[in-house]
């Protein structure tokens, strides 16, 4: 199978993720959509790695996974404490950072 198809899939996943980030209000869902975008990027990196025949893309994909794991820890902690204080996980409710 041609590796280009993987790129199409990556673009599709990224678009779904981006749309989710922009349209959904629930912080957990937004968070998952971000993960989706990250994994779309990983998929694209690995596909490019295969297409060009070197391992750089794969290595960066590993890095991305590590960073994503760390980010999940921090992000979930923020979301949980936000939910505890406001009893809501809507991102639009947390809009105090403005002038």
């Amino acid at each position: 199978m041609s590796p280009v198809n993987y790129l199409y899939l990556a673009a599709l996943l990224f678009t779904i993720g981006a749309t989710g980030v922009l349209l959904r209000r629930n912080a957990i869902v937004v968070f998952m959509c971000i993960e989706l975008m990250l994994n779309a990027c990983n998929l694209a990196l690995v596909a490019f790695s295969r297409m060009h025949g070197n391992l750089d893309g794969q290595i960066i994909a590993f890095f991305t996974m590590v960073v994503a794991a760390a980010e999940v820890v921090v992000g979930l902690a923020i979301i949980v404490s936000l939910f505890r204080s406001r009893h809501s996980a809507s991102v639009d409710d947390a809009s105090l950072m403005k002038l």
């Binding site: 922009l22 209000r25 639009d92 105090l96 002038l99």
Partner: peptide, 17 residues
């Protein structure tokens, strides 16, 4: 300009995209 800073994370995301 400060009207752009509305505090909605999703609106910032739109700007970024």
């Amino acid at each position: 300009l400060r009207k752009l800073q509305n505090g909605y994370a999703r609106s910032y995301a739109v700007s970024m995209f």
